[in-house]
Write a protein that binds this DNA or RNA. Sequence first.
DNA 1: CATTCTTTGACTAATGTTGACTAATATTAT
DNA 2: ATAATATTAGTCAACATTAGTCAAAGAATG
Lengths: 155, 155
Amino acid sequence: MEGQNISDVIERYLKTILADSEHVEIRRSEIANLFDVVPSQINYVIKTRFTIQNGYMVESKRGGGGYIRIEKVNLLDDVSVLNSLIKVIGNSISERDAVSIIQTLYDEGVVSRREADLMVVAIEKSTYSISDRQLENALRANILISLLNRLRYES
Amino acid sequence: MEGQNISDVIERYLKTILADSEHVEIRRSEIANLFDVVPSQINYVIKTRFTIQNGYMVESKRGGGGYIRIEKVNLLDDVSVLNSLIKVIGNSISERDAVSIIQTLYDEGVVSRREADLMVVAIEKSTYSISDRQLENALRANILISLLNRLRYES
DNA sequence: CATTCTTTGACTAATGTTGACTAATATTAT
DNA sequence: ATAATATTAGTCAACATTAGTCAAAGAATG
């Protein structure tokens, strides 16, 4: 039987709520109090159990009236194409290769023409105004991978 | 439930009025009284929630008969608004302000939900993995401006 | 026993609230 | 007209209220 530690208990508590509603909004300190743990434990639970890979999206606000909101999202089926493309990118990619990946996404029907156009803008050398080529390629890889990961689900 | 702080409440109040009319004109002290806050809180609400990034323009007058007037501006048929938006971005912009701009584009029907989602990913701090804040904000400005300019035409 | 996962708390960051002081405009008195 | 006064809004910094990060210590696991 798993679920002996408090993080698992908190996870179950939140997922019970999420079984009925699409999202749950909490006050960090309240939940921490409820389970008698330090507030940052809530962050730990969220970081390890409510990731986008698990189908959850988290948004929060600090300050008075602050909150943490966990939302269930729908994972899509195009995942296999995305996985192999992400593998190709690695941690550095040229503009030319990036454009061809986006072209592939368009050809495969994963993105619309307009979405592809926007993605291209986001990876173009001319928008970055960075002179260091290595930095440029690394940044492009980060952005492209983030874009691809975003295509895995809809909010 | 989101929006537990008084600033959010005041924001909703004003936006409810703006849902019906193109503009709202208030007396600062009256609104402050209505919600039992100090007058300068109204300035805070306006400064954080009714910026040009959010699609609003504010004008005011002091002295007897003074007022604050909030006007909803239309991105679609007002070219100058897009220009002033780009001017606001300049060569540096925070993630928060950038998200506001993209949210406004979505609200105005300029971009689809999915396009907006992709744009947000392209300006998020977490995708860049840059520790230097100034560099991060400068890069974000470049990318956002490029994206906005791309929206000016169809391919 | 080594490794990974969990728990804790000190420090940081973001956002919201308040009030004293300033600035602009209008009104009234001289 | 001009000066004094009244009536508005603006700015800014201190303080309050939340959440986030990170690394060290402890517990569980294999």
